[in-house]
């Protein structure tokens, strides 16, 4: 199970290993119905672009960045628009 959802007082989704595009829909559903969701990307190694864009677009609170510094860097500064 690449994404494990823990609902409760501090709802959090744990992304694990390789997350494929098809997981994005369920993840988005979860984001929509969850109040103040958070994600833990500590063990996420290969997130699909679709997942990454949800993380960026929905401005999800990230409690643990991925261990790959490149991925972490992408998620850390995500609010700039594409320069022309």
């Amino acid at each position: 199970m690449p994404i494990r959802y823990v609902d409760g007082d501090e709802p959090c989704a744990f992304l694990d290993g390789r997350v494929i595009a098809e997981d994005a829909e369920a993840f988005l559903e979860w984001l929509r119905r969850t109040y103040d969701p958070a994600v833990d990307l500590r063990s996420c190694t290969d997130p699909h672009t679709a997942l990454m864009q949800l993380l960026l677009g929905a401005r999800v609170r990230i409690v643990q960045l991925p261990s790959d510094p490149m991925l972490a860097g992408c998620l850390a500064d995500n609010d700039s628009k594409v320069p022309r």
């Binding site: 595009a21 984001l31 679709a50 949800l54 929905a58 490149m70 860097g73 995500n78 628009k81 594409v82």
Partner: peptide, 19 residues
């Protein structure tokens, strides 16, 4: 170095199309 940027401004959560 790697950067990901939104092409269009992100819509509200309810309108995001994940695909």
């Amino acid at each position: 170095a790697l950067r990901l940027d939104a092409v269009e401004a992100w819509p509200p959560l309810a309108e995001i199309d994940p695909f």
